[in-house]
């Protein structure tokens, strides 16, 4: 029984980190109404950035945040500004431009394979960092310390985003644009600037997620694909555009992955996750905790 609780706790912790990786996806969808297929690749780029920052400077892994998050904000800002904005301008009447999916998939392929070209396919890990393999002992249970910090980061980031969107002037402008981009433009909001900022914020949260992942996770060129597809599943489970939903969706996935192997072969849990995803998609596309969108 105890090991089941231990698995569940570790599953919730890891799941919240999955949720953190998916936060950016849901923010970007909430505002731009498009699914950023390159999100996993942006996470992968962030992970490499965090890895190299720590490996080259010898800082504490979490200190990399001060470089990675702002750098990723700028990266996302200009990615949207240069690559995606032209599509929005060309397809102004389309409510949910499919072309953006295509273009972001192109970005995915470029980033993943450029990384492969530059750094090679090998797995990289931050050797002898203070967090690696650290465990917290509670009774007879072992809880991973870096995952615990990841959980804290996820909750903090989600609350921070929530407050930003609810309380600040810029956050309100972003929400106004997400509700009706034409009307927002008429009110003097620069629609495309808001898109850039939302994309930057989404990418910066991928940066935060990367920093929490790097101390205990392998870094390799296709690591993003793993999180990309998990991210899609999480945001649809939690309701596209919902910040709390992304965290809860992540925790569900984490629980299935950690508790599932007690009852079946570990690799089957992945199939269960896909099955659950399709089920939700078919039965309740607005997600389990759905913000209702007109899908």
């Amino acid at each position: 029984m105890l090991f089941l609780i231990e698995d569940a706790i570790n599953g919730i912790l890891m799941g919240s980190i999955y949720g953190l990786t998916a936060l950016g996806l849901t923010v970007i969808f909430g505002v731009l109404k498009v699914i950023n297929f390159a999100h996993g690749s942006l996470l992968m780029v962030s992970m490499y950035a965090a890895y190299w920052t720590v490996a080259l400077t010898g800082w504490h892994p979490y200190l990399a945040l001060v470089i990675v998050a702002p750098a990723m904000f700028v990266f996302g800002y200009y990615l949207q500004d240069i690559v995606i904005k032209p599509i929005f301008k060309a397809e102004q009447d389309v409510r949910e431009p499919i072309t953006v999916i295509i273009v972001t998939t192109g970005v995915w392929y470029i980033l993943d394979n450029l990384t492969l070209l530059l750094f090679g396919p090998q797995y990289r890990t931050l050797q002898d960092n203070p967090l690696r393999g650290r465990m917290l002992e509670i009774g007879q249970m072992l809880i991973s310390v870096p995952k615990l910090w990841g959980f804290a980061a996820a909750v903090l980031t989600a609350s921070g985003l929530y407050l930003f969107f609810q309380k600040t002037r810029l956050g309100r402008a972003v929400r106004a644009t997400s509700l009706d981009r034409q009307a927002a433009s008429l009110m003097g909001i620069n629609q495309y600037k808001v898109y850039n900022i939302a994309f930057g914020i989404g990418t910066a949260t991928a940066g935060i997620a990367a920093v929490t992942l790097v101390p205990f996770y392998n870094v390799f060129p296709t690591v993003g694909v793993l999180f990309d597809i998990k991210g899609f599943i999480i945001v649809v489970l939690g309701g596209l555009g919902s910040i709390g939903g992304a965290l809860l969706g992540g925790i569900i996935i984490g629980l299935i992955e950690s508790v599932g192997p007690q009852f079946m072969t570990a690799t089957w849990t992945e199939a269960i996750v896909y099955g659950l995803f399709l089920l939700v998609l078919f039965v309740k596309p607005s997600g389990l905790f759905g913000v209702r969108y007109d899908w």
Partner: peptide, 28 residues
């Protein structure tokens, strides 16, 4: 059947997840 009623992104996601699900199953 269930996906064509939805718009854009959902259909893309559903087909993608479906194909990946099939691959995982065959691998297992």
């Amino acid at each position: 059947l269930p996906t064509f009623k939805m718009r854009g992104a959902y259909f893309a996601l559903a087909t993608l997840a479906f194909a990946e699900g099939i691959r995982v199953m065959v691998e297992n």
